[in-house]
Amino acid sequence: MIKKNTKIPRQSILKKEEETFDYIDSFQSQICSKNLNIKISEILNLFLYNGPKWIGFLLSVRDKIAGLFGLKTSKKKTKNQKPKENISYKTGDQLGIFKIFDKSENEFILGEDDKHLNFKVSLLLEPGNKEINEAKISITTAVTFNNIFGKIYFFPVKPFHRLIVQKTLKRIVKNLENEMPENKKEYKIR
Rank of each mutant, 00 (worst) to 15 (best):
residue 75 K to S: 11
residue 95 L to H: 02
residue 64 K to N: 14
residue 40 I to G: 08
residue 96 G to Q: 01
residue 62 R to L: 06
residue 99 K to I: 10
residue 95 L to I: 10
residue 40 I to A: 10
residue 66 A to Q: 05
residue 106 N to D: 14
residue 106 N to Y: 11
residue 101 F to R: 04
residue 55 I to V: 04
residue 54 W to S: 09
residue 72 K to D: 04
residue 89 Y to H: 07
residue 98 F to S: 02
residue 45 N to P: 01
residue 93 D to F: 02
residue 74 S to H: 12
residue 109 I to V: 12
residue 124 L to M: 12
residue 125 L to I: 13
residue 121 V to E: 04
residue 116 H to C: 08
residue 104 S to E: 08
residue 88 S to R: 14
residue 89 Y to A: 00
residue 90 K to H: 07
residue 85 E to C: 11
residue 71 L to F: 05
residue 121 V to L: 09
residue 73 T to H: 06
residue 86 N to M: 11
residue 97 I to K: 00
residue 63 D to I: 06
residue 122 S to Y: 11
residue 92 G to S: 05
residue 55 I to W: 00
residue 54 W to K: 09
residue 108 F to T: 00
residue 66 A to E: 01
residue 49 Y to P: 03
residue 109 I to D: 04
residue 65 I to W: 12
residue 83 P to L: 11
residue 121 V to W: 02
residue 81 Q to G: 13
residue 38 I to L: 13
residue 100 I to E: 01
residue 98 F to C: 01
residue 62 R to E: 01
residue 118 N to M: 12
residue 78 T to P: 08
residue 105 E to K: 14
residue 83 P to D: 13
residue 112 E to K: 03
residue 115 K to V: 08
residue 93 D to R: 00
residue 79 K to N: 15
residue 82 K to E: 15
residue 124 L to E: 13
residue 95 L to R: 05
residue 67 G to D: 04
residue 67 G to K: 05
residue 99 K to Q: 12
residue 82 K to V: 14
residue 67 G to A: 04
residue 73 T to C: 04
residue 81 Q to N: 15
residue 49 Y to R: 12
residue 54 W to V: 05
residue 111 G to Y: 06
residue 69 F to L: 15
residue 80 N to S: 13
residue 56 G to A: 11
residue 109 I to K: 00
residue 80 N to L: 12
